[in-house]
Design a protein around this nucleic acid. Structure first.
Length: 253
DNA sequence: ATGCCTCAGCTCCTGAGA
């Protein structure tokens, strides 16, 4: 079984690239973030490509989807108990795996309202994952986390110290998710040096590999032994009109 | 540099992303 996550920064613009990518990477589950469209505008093309789709869209901002080869079961939108007008989370069962696809808040900058929202959202996500793990030991939490684990995830850890994605507060929340019994799947396997998943559109950041690793796949204890590979696929970032994020792919035996 | 690039929309500028 293969699962992947990809922030595609507008499904309208990136649809052909997603379809192309699925042809060469026929994963069982693809979690998409930042669709930037409403459910009514979600394209039918994925059905033609052999995928079931669950969309939780939003106009202009956010919006997430789960593309699955098998129909997704027991779908939950957003974080129960956490009132939110923003569409950021889809949870569903695919086969015997509980999958959570999420677009974590950006947070803008420490001290802002958006940062405070991010902190509250992270707390709600932690409680949701804690509760889901009790019911579903085989769990995958993947998406655009907008948080780096540590300096190894940052192209300029000195210059970016304490800035958004790199603050102690965000990283404490990320470690709290790990402490629920999850594992950073990418780090279970040997990786290239300076292994990032996002690069700014500006300043030729991708060419210079000035990036951040902020897209993650976390897997539960019960899945750890079956994980055989996990890596960032940088190739789509070389497309003509790329998303600023690259997909991350997990393989389970 | 409150900049750089990209996307959506109250579209030719602004807000947001990260």
């Amino acid at each position: 079984m293969q699962l992947a996550t990809w922030n595609i920064n507008s499904l309208t613009v990136r649809l052909p690239q997603v379809l192309d990518w699925l042809q060469t990477h026929p994963v069982d589950v693809l979690a998409l973030q930042e669709l930037k469209l409403t459910d009514e505008k979600f394209p039918a093309d994925f059905a033609v490509a052999g995928y079931h789709a669950v969309c939780f869209g939003q106009k202009t901002y956010n919006g997430v989807a789960l593309l699955t080869k098998e129909p997704a079961q027991d779908v939950v939108r957003n974080l129960p108990g956490f009132e939110d007008v923003q569409s950021r989370v889809l949870t569903a069962t695919v086969g015997d795996v509980r999958v959570i696809g999420a677009y974590f808040p950006n947070g803008q900058a420490p001290g802002t309202d958006k940062f405070a929202y991010k902190m509250h959202w992270l707390e709600a996500m932690r409680e949701w994952v804690r509760a889901q793990l009790v019911l579903h030991p085989k769990l995958v939490l993947m998406g655009d986390y907008n948080i780096t684990f540590d300096d190894a995830d940052v192209w300029d850890p000195v210059g970016l110290a304490g800035t958004i994605h790199c603050t102690d507060e965000e990283r404490t929340h990320l470690r709290a998710l790990i402490d629920l019994g999850l594992h950073d799947a990418v780090r279970l396997f040997e990786q290239p040096e300076k292994n990032y998943s996002w690069w700014d559109y500006r300043d030729f950041a991708f060419r210079r590999n000035r990036g951040l690793r902020i897209d993650h796949i976390l897997i539960s204890d019960a899945l750890k032994a079956s994980a055989t590979a996990c890596a960032v696929d940088k190739l789509p970032r070389k497309n003509e009109r790329p998303s600023d994020h690259a997909p991350v792919v997990l393989t389970l035996a």
